[in-house]
Design a protein around this nucleic acid. Sequence first.
RNA 1: GCACUCGUAGCUCAGCUGGAUAGAGUACUCGGCUACGAACCGAGCGGUCGGUGGUUCGAAUCCACCCGAGUGCACCA
Length: 595
Amino acid sequence: MLSVTGNLQSELIIGQIEENTIMRIKELLNQRFLVAMQAAGIPSECSPTLALGGKAQFGDYQANGAMAAAKRLAMPPRELAQKILDNLDLDGIAETLEIAGPGFINIGLSNAFLADSLGEPKAGPARDQQTVVVDYSSPNLAKEMHVGHLRTTIIGDTLARVLEYQGHEVIRQNHMGDWGTQFGMLIAELEEHLGEGEQAALALNDLEVFYQQSKKHFDADPEFADRARAYVVKLQSGDQHCRGLWQKFITVSVAHSLEIYQELNVGLTEEHVKAESAYNDDLDTVVKDLVDLGLAVESEGAKVVFLAELADKNGNPSPMIVQKSGGGFLYATSDLAALRHRVNTLKADRILYFIDARQSLHMKQVFATGRKAQFVPPTVSLEHHPFGTMMGPDGKPFKTRTGGTVKLADFLVEAIERAERLMREKNTDLNETEIKAVARKIGIGAIKYADLSITRTNDYVFDWDAMMSFDGNTAPYLQYAYTRIRSIFRKADIDPETFSAPIEIVAAEEKTLALKLLQFDEVIDQIAADCYPHTLCAYLYELASVYMSFYEHCPVVKAGVPEKTQHSRLQLCALTAATLAQGLDLLGIDVMEKM
RNA sequence: GCACUCGUAGCUCAGCUGGAUAGAGUACUCGGCUACGAACCGAGCGGUCGGUGGUUCGAAUCCACCCGAGUGCACCA
C-alpha cells in the first residue's frame, strides 16, 4: 500500500529505471526501498543498504538499512522494518519478504520475475558516455618486455574492454619509454654494429643481449661512454644522424612489443603508441608555464615544483624536478605534457593510469601539479590504479632460475607448451592443429586469469602448477565449463546462437543460475567504476560453479525430460555460455568449442 | 627519519558504502561415472581475521597506538 507521495515518486523513479537501464536487480530494489522508506517517514539520507543475501536462508538480497534508520529515529528497528514493508511495493518481483534478526529485511525473488527478466532483450547502457583515456603497458623500449610488464598490460586492457562494452569512448595510450638517457648508449652501440656492415634487424635480434653488450661497452670504454653521453644531447636536440640511428632501434623494439601484444591477445596496436618522444617539443613550454605560474622554482640549479599538499608531518613539501640543472628533462616533465595533451587534444573526461604501485608518489606529484597549473580542470578525473609485484613461489619477485628477469616472449612460450603437455595427458580427441590452437588459448588464458583474478593492489604469487592445474578458480575451468555447454548443443543438434525458448524456473539450481546470470551487469558496473577486474573473475567462477551444480541436478537432453523443460534448460545453457564467453572476452581470454 | 601498501584456514586468496554462524580454492579424508565431457560434482576437516585499546545495537572492515613484511622518498624512467 503506497501513500500518495510514495506512489508518485514510485512511478517517477520506476519509470526512469525501466527507461534507461538493463535489468539491474539491485538498482531496482534500491529504488523501490527508497520510495518505501520515504513513505514510512524516513529521512532521504538513509540508504536501504542493499546487499546480496549472505546465505540461502537470508534470501536473494537483503536490505540492511532499517537498523541505521531506526537508530536515527530512535525507534525499535524491527518495528521500523515492518513499517518499510507496509509501504513497499515489490509485486511481481519478490515472493517472500521477511524481517529477521535485529531488523534485516530478507528478499526472496520470484521465479517468474527472474525468468521474465532473462527473456528481456539486453538494452545498451544509456548512462553518460565519457571519453576515457587508458594509459597502460608503456614498456621501456631500451630492453625487451619482461614479466614486469604483464600486469599493466593485462589489467589495463581489461579495463579498456570493459569501458568499451559500456559504450564509452576509450582511447588507449601506450606511453612507451623511448627517450631516456640509455638511448645515447644504445645508438652509439648500434652505430658500431652498422659500421661493421651488420643489419639493424640482425644486431637487434635480441634486445636484451644488445642492451647488456652496450652497457658493458659503456662501462669499459671511456671514449665510448663520452660518445654515448654526447649522443643523448644530440638526439634530443634533433641531430639527423642520431635521430636516424634511434629510429632504427625504436622500429625494431616497437615491432617486438606489438608481436607480444598479438600473442597475448591484447588490443594494443601501433595506433595506440604515443611514446615519450612525442612530447619532446612541448617540454620547454611545460617548464616555462610552470615557472610563469610560480609553481616551478630554481633549487640547486634545477627547476623544481614543491608541493605543500604532499608535505610530510614536519611540513617539508614534496619536491618534483621538472628540469635538471644541466637543462635536461625528466619523465615528470613528459608526464605533464602528456596530461595536457590528453585533456586538451583528446578531450578526456577520465584518465586512467595502470602503473606499478611504486610509482604512487610520482603519480600524486604529477596529478597535484597538473591540477595546480590548471592543465586539468576539476571535471576531469585523474586516477592512478596501482598494482603489486608478481612474485615467484618463493615469495620473491619472479625471476629465472639464474636470477635474471624473465622475458615475456619466453614466458608466453612456456605457458603454451605447458598447456599442450597437459592436454596430451588428458584424453582429447582433437587433432594436432586443433591441439596447438587450443593450447595457445589455454596457456595465454591461464596466465592472464592468474593475474586478473587477484586483487589488483596486492603482490601476488605466481605458480605454474597452481595456475595450470585446471582446478579451482582458473581460466581452464571456465573454458571447460563453456565447452561442456557447447557439447550439449552439439548433442542436441541445436544452434545455441539462434536458439530461443521461454524459461520456466522450477528447481532450486535453476533459480540460482538465473539470478547469477542477471547479475552480470552489476559486476561490470562496479569494475568500470573501481577498476578491480578480480571481481569479474570471481563472478565468472561463481557462475561456472553454479552452472556445474545445475548441470548435475537438471538433465537437459537426457531421456525423459519433457520438451518444455528441455527447452527452458537449453535457454539457460545458452545464456550461461554467452555470459561466460562475454565475460572472458572482457578479460581478453578466448573460449573454444572443444578442449 | 618520513610516506604509501599489506598482515584472514597448512598453502594461494575473497570478504562490496560497518551487518546475521568470516567464505572459496588447494592440500588432506570420505562418497558419486552401463558418461547431456569425472579437466566434474557432493560431504567432512581446517580460523583468537598480527596485537592492544577505542567508536556502537553490531568491527576482518572505521580511529589511535604497537609488532611484523614490502615499497618509495631531488637531477634514471
